[in-house]
Simulated scan of single mutants.
Amino acid sequence: MSGGGGALRPLGLTSLKPGEYACERCGVAVPTPIDAAREYQVIAKIGGGFPGGNAPRPSGAMYVVRMGLCEVCTARDESAREVLKAHPRIQRLSGAESTGLHRIAQVLDALAVLGRTADLTPALSDQAVLAAINLLMAEGSAVRWMARFAPVIEAGAQEGSCAVEPWLHVDTTARLGLREAYGRWMLARAGLRPRIPCPDPSGGCMFCGVSWIDGGEWRAASVRPSSVGGFGPEPLRGHLCTLCAEAVDSAGALGRTALEFSLVAALGVPGVKFTGGGDDLGGLIQLHGLRAWAAVNAQPGHRRVKPCAEPWGFIADSTRDALREQLMGREGLTADV
């Protein structure tokens, strides 16, 4: 690609060499085969920049720009995948895995400009990650190299240019905005409850198997195996997360009803409760085969089920989705788990 002749580049930018494309995120030059380049449809506007120093195009004209993706930015996408995997609730709220990944990757790009990507980790609480998405996602999208071109090309942007170093194209005003957004996120995190891991040696809630809670306290508990779908004379001992402890309080005892209350609460269907009232579906729940996580792991010869990133995560996604659909229709639940 041409760098537009001997045109003077802004400070921090340089011309691409033949066979190179600018990384769509950080802007550095990336050797990229043409069949591996990413293509974007962009719109020219009056006063905008134009590809390779070519003659101006009329306002509203469409053309294609090609970009690459450097190894560092590719690795950051893997970090986004790890964060999303540790927060299934955020994936559900996003509607699709690809959407959740896109949002978290934008947050990480914003943090990359500030050199703070290590601040967003899988160990953060759901609230902390959601706060990062709300406060930093738009900032991360705006500082990407591709934002100079798509959907409308910025004034002075040229396809034949790239950043001398990662993110060097980000101007002072944008960096100040990033720092302010980052500061708001730090303040938000300071007011959030910390993620607390299960203190039990098993590593998970004895009912739902979740490995952490967002604040609150774990409750020590002991129950007969037969009461929660298990076998044997020895009681099961462990800890309950806040969700399962509340389910036990609502049910009035440690047992199968508390298991069902906990599972349905974890499904997150609005308006469903078990404390009495018009939307109380407690009497309509019949979940055959539902067993506590501790009971599953106590079964002789059974392969151990690892602690979960979310309550009842050891139950198949398809089963939980089917149960959620039944609840949304206020049909009650009658199913094999």
Rank of each mutant, 00 (worst) to 15 (best):
G5K: 06
A7L: 15
L11N: 13
C26S: 14
V28R: 12
V28G: 12
V30F: 07
P31I: 01
P31C: 04
P33A: 00
I34V: 04
E39G: 01
Y40K: 03
A44Y: 09
I46Y: 14
G47E: 02
G49L: 11
S59I: 00
A61Q: 14
M62R: 12
G68V: 05
R76P: 11
A80E: 03
V83F: 01
E97I: 11
L101H: 10
A110I: 08
L114M: 12
R116D: 09
A118K: 03
L120V: 13
L120Y: 01
T121C: 11
L124G: 15
S125L: 02
A132S: 02
L136N: 03
M137Y: 10
G140K: 02
G140R: 03
G140E: 09
A142Q: 13
V143F: 10
V143Y: 07
V143H: 11
R144Y: 00
A147V: 00
F149P: 03
P151L: 13
P151G: 13
P151R: 09
P151N: 12
V152Q: 12
V152W: 09
E154R: 13
A155V: 10
A155W: 14
G156S: 10
S161I: 08
P166W: 03
L168V: 06
L168S: 15
D171F: 14
A174W: 01
G177L: 15
L178N: 08
L178I: 14
Y182R: 00
L192F: 10
R193P: 08
I196G: 07
P199M: 10
D200F: 06
D200L: 00
C205M: 08
M206G: 14
F207M: 00
I213F: 08
E217R: 14
R219P: 04
S222K: 08
S222A: 13
V223L: 01
P233A: 02
L236C: 04
G238Q: 11
V248A: 04
G252H: 01
R256S: 05
R256M: 02
E260S: 04
L263V: 01
V264W: 03
A266G: 03
A266N: 12
L267K: 06
L267I: 02
P270G: 02
F274W: 06
D279A: 11
G282T: 02
L290P: 15
R291L: 00
A292I: 05
W293R: 00
A298C: 00
Q299H: 15
P300Q: 04
R303S: 10
K306H: 10
P307C: 09
G313Y: 01
I315N: 05
I315P: 10
S318W: 04
T319F: 06
T319N: 04
Q326N: 09
M328I: 05
G329V: 12
R330H: 15
T334K: 10
A335Y: 06
A335L: 08
D336G: 10
V337F: 11
V337I: 14
